[in-house]
Design a protein around this nucleic acid. Sequence first.
DNA 1: ACGCTACATCGACAGTTATCGAAACAAGGC
DNA 2: GCCTTGTTTCGATAACTGTCGATGTAGCGT
Lengths: 125, 125
Amino acid sequence: MSNANAKVLPLLEPVGQDTAPCCPPLTERPFSAEEADTAARMFKALGDPVRLRLFSLVASHEGGEACVCDISDVGVSQPTVSHHLKKLKEAGLLTSERRGTWVYYRVEPSVLAAMGRLLTLRPAA
Amino acid sequence: MSNANAKVLPLLEPVGQDTAPCCPPLTERPFSAEEADTAARMFKALGDPVRLRLFSLVASHEGGEACVCDISDVGVSQPTVSHHLKKLKEAGLLTSERRGTWVYYRVEPSVLAAMGRLLTLRPAA
DNA sequence: ACGCTACATCGACAGTTATCGAAACAAGGC
DNA sequence: GCCTTGTTTCGATAACTGTCGATGTAGCGT
């Protein structure tokens, strides 16, 4: 198995605090096919109600992280929760770490900021 | 037919400039099932590369609007373009208006702002 | 070693979605 | 009226996605 995370977003690594993590604001110029593909993957990850709730649960949890046991009460089975968390992880929105029996998930702030920047309106134009 | 837009987001109408259009920031508190359902619909609409490109083309076009003929060059057939535009419209992200032979699409700024707000990080906490 | 708990993966199924070609519809010019 | 151009709708199909139960794996406690 060796969870070598083979599907993390390629543009995640070089993300700093002021570097453009993936794309310019949607309103700035037409997206290329590549940019659209990258950005759509992130939006799609949040395009499911269960995933959105899980993400919100992690993001709003004390300390910015939560173990699966804390957030499993969203009305679907445990395997389904695990499936969705994996999707969020593959989209680069969450990271996970095992500590003893439990696995803790936390949000990736830079990606969240990147998506927010995508949706900014034209300053004044 | 009578295009009585029967599927516009219910929370679109009462949106002002400072009222919460749908949900608090994702990081503020766990989303309810209802909130998640509403917000996920918007994210899902942008979760497709073709739709994202179309949306970006409209949003970045001169005057904030574009006719279908201006944005049909995204690599899919014309019916498919129309299909995606319809989806974006149903999600409340675009509005359309027919002027003579052409149909013009423009972005709904309030919804864009709402999604941006959803993704804001905790101010300082 | 054994069982128990927390979490992940597998395999299958149902529902949804993206895509196309063909056809219908709308507006304008002849 | 009829034809041309632009756009939407229709019907069909292939691919994807969410969901589950069963099973597998990792760590803790006895």
